[in-house]
């Protein structure tokens, strides 16, 4: 799948309700064009996973997701042999034929007994798919190697079957919260996109498009206030999804304009740590922080 132009990507994403900036649209365009995976890095809740989902949606492709975690291995990421079925097969054969082990072994190590896991599945689906490798930084360094062959050559080697090449080249998104440095080998193979918190204007647009019934003035106030919060030294800064939750609750409560009292009363939607809430509360009460 190739896009006509970068603005084409922008339009398609917008239709999905994902508001891209120029950088996002450019990288998605290049990824499709060069058939390269994209490594999306950034703080939690800035729409990394959402981007992959929206791309899959807008292209009407299947989204295949591999959630990474410590201890993820080949049998969970790429493929596994279906032991149960193999065992049944072995037990089902005639005693006479049992001698012919070679025939049998060829049989039980065939496609029929192969369990596909996300990476293999992404390569073998007949139509092009979007592969999302989520939170790749949670893998140990050694386990990253699992991804390398898939990402650069779009193929998988299975000792008993040989190399399985992809029927089509999937669009690949890897997301990372940067809790550790990824290996050079992995980074080299990807295009890089850093998703930061949106700036005030983009955040306002996101709020307006996602929260029904929000007035322009309120959206403006909210986005302005959130950006001030993100400048503070918080344990966990409010993410985009949290600011959307907040906006939705404010609309639900019938708030037209932010006041200090409503803000303090609803802070727990935005901030998830007691110490953060106390900090913001005290700076609001002392007037050090002013609502825009």
């Amino acid at each position: 799948m190739k896009f006509d132009s970068i603005s084409h990507v922008e339009d398609l994403l917008k239709k999905q309700g994902y508001l891209p900036n120029k950088e996002i649209a450019t990288v998605v365009y290049l990824a499709a064009r060069l058939q390269k995976p994209v490594l999306v890095e950034g703080p939690a809740g800035t729409g990394k996973t959402e981007l992959a989902k929206s791309v899959a949606h807008m292209l009407k492709m299947e989204l295949i997701r591999l959630q990474c975690y410590e201890g993820l291995d080949e049998s969970k990421a790429i493929y596994e042999w279906n032991y149960r079925k193999q065992l049944l097969r072995i037990q089902a054969v005639d005693v006479d034929v049992k001698q012919q082990w070679s025939v049998l072994s060829e049989d039980i190590f065939s496609e029929e007994y192969l369990l596909e896991r996300p990476l293999l599945k992404a390569l073998r689906t007949p139509s092009q798919s979007v592969l999302l490798v989520d939170e790749v930084d949670r893998l140990e360094v050694e386990a990253e190697a699992l991804l390398l062959e898939v990402l650069s050559d779009f193929q998988v080697s299975i000792p008993e079957l040989g190399t399985i090449a992809s029927k089509q080249i999937p669009l690949v998104f890897l997301t990372s919260n940067a809790t550790r440095d990824l290996s050079e080998a992995l980074k080299r193979r990807c295009l890089y996109l850093y998703l930061d918190y949106p700036d005030i204007d983009r955040e306002r647009e996101i709020i307006e498009s996602k929260v029904a019934g929000v007035t322009e003035a309120l959206a403006h106030q909210i986005s302005d206030y959130i950006s001030k919060l993100r400048d503070m030294d918080l344990k966990k800064r409010p993410s985009v999804s949290e600011s959307l939750d907040w906006a939705a609750s404010l609309v639900e409560m019938g708030v037209v304009s932010l006041s200090r009292e409503t803000t303090i009363a609803t802070l727990n939607i935005l901030l998830k740590y007691r110490s953060d809430i106390d900090l913001v509360k005290s700076s609001l009460q002392s007037g050090r922080m002013v609502l825009g």
């Binding site: 950088e23 450019t26 990288v27 290049l30 980074k187 080299r188 990807c190 295009l191 890089y192 996109l193």
Partner: peptide, 12 residues
């Protein structure tokens, strides 16, 4: 600029 950054710089 975006294009070069995406391909050459892999660390924010």
């Amino acid at each position: 600029r975006c294009t070069l950054a995406a391909t050459l710089i892999k660390d924010v």
